[in-house]
Amino acid sequence: MTFSPTVIFVVIFCVQSLAAMLQNGFMVAVLGREWVQSQALPAGDTIVAWLAAFRFCLHGLAIISNFLNFMFKCKNYFFGTLWDFTNTITCWLTTWLAVFYCVKISSFSHPIFFWMKWRISRSVPRLLLGSLILGCLSAISTVTGNIITFQMMACENCTFSYRVRKFYQYYFRCHAMLMCGTPFFLFLLSILLLMFSLYWHLEQMRHHRPRPHDHSTQAHTTALKSLAFFLIFYTSYVLLLSISTAQVITIYSSWRWAWEVITYTGISLHSTILMLSSPKMRKALKMKFSSLCVAGS
């Protein structure tokens, strides 16, 4: 039996998305249990918990939406709107996590950074609420664009219908760039500031006696590894949204599915890095594997 490249990529996409849902569900369960026990979570873990929860939903909606598009050759606008809502929130949560790392770890001596270090943890609930509001605005924008397009397409004039399609592409291209391009720019800025902070810190260390355990350098390096790795896939993610909106690659193209596999794999691997870099997550994983080994023996 022979399989087309599209079918192979579809299967890979579904399998890795289900694995990502399992991984993010585990992170939500661990952090949720800690929140129930202590009635509080550190600010960074709160962002991670929200990010894991919405990534769980994002992977699930991506499977449903892409499966409907692939099987029935039509776009489901309901699931598309839900995906757009979840995707916008996920992009902003990823950005807030990068900003949080940048503010907490960076060693700048400017008063603005001192003020941000003091305020960032208290501002996390507002950042989360702001992400939800932006997600709602994104969904409203998507629904409004669809309604306007449907009403304009009721006209049977061929020239007018062509203009409607051009308006639809232009509208949602601007929508995607605004909702995903803005957090991407802040994400990139946070990485650049962290890199400059690490460079400045290393320059300072050259003129002083080096410490055997430089926790600041280690924190900079750990954060940059996680963020810089995800930056590659975040870039491809924004490009994919732009290409999809412009309809350069259709949903039925194997190249589209190959790109989605790469992009969503990058999101999954970023979640893996977040999980393995957390001591409490590693501890929960060890306990889980130990219990499975005991049960299997």
Rank of each mutant, 00 (worst) to 15 (best):
S4M: 05
T6G: 10
V7A: 09
F9N: 13
F9V: 12
F13R: 09
C14W: 11
C14F: 10
Q16A: 06
L18P: 07
Q23C: 10
Q23M: 11
Q23S: 15
N24V: 06
N24G: 06
M27C: 14
V28Q: 06
V28F: 11
A29T: 10
A29G: 05
A29E: 08
L31I: 01
L31Q: 07
G32P: 05
E34I: 10
Q39W: 13
Q39S: 13
A40C: 13
L41E: 04
A43S: 12
A43P: 06
D45F: 06
D45M: 09
D45V: 04
T46P: 02
V48I: 15
V48F: 10
V48C: 13
W50K: 15
A53E: 08
A53K: 12
A53D: 04
F54K: 10
F54P: 03
F56G: 00
C57Q: 14
L58R: 10
L58I: 09
L61T: 15
L61G: 08
L61V: 13
A62E: 15
I63E: 05
I64S: 07
F67K: 01
N69H: 11
N69Q: 10
F70Y: 11
M71L: 12
F72G: 04
F72E: 13
C74M: 10
C74T: 12
Y77C: 02
F78R: 04
F78C: 04
F79D: 02
F79V: 09
L82A: 12
W83T: 09
F85W: 05
F85M: 06
F85I: 05
T86D: 08
N87K: 09
T88D: 03
I89V: 14
T90P: 05
W92E: 05
W92C: 03
T95C: 15
W96Q: 06
W96H: 09
W96P: 00
L97S: 11
L97A: 11
A98R: 00
Y101I: 00
Y101T: 00
K104R: 13
K104E: 03
I105S: 05
I105E: 01
I105D: 00
H110P: 03
P111T: 02
I112W: 09
F113D: 00
F114N: 07
F114K: 05
W115E: 11
W115F: 11
M116N: 00
K117R: 11
W118P: 00
I120Y: 02
S123T: 12
S123I: 03
V124E: 02
V124I: 04
P125A: 04
L127N: 01
L128F: 01
L128D: 01
L128E: 00
L128Q: 03
L129G: 10
L129A: 13
G130C: 09
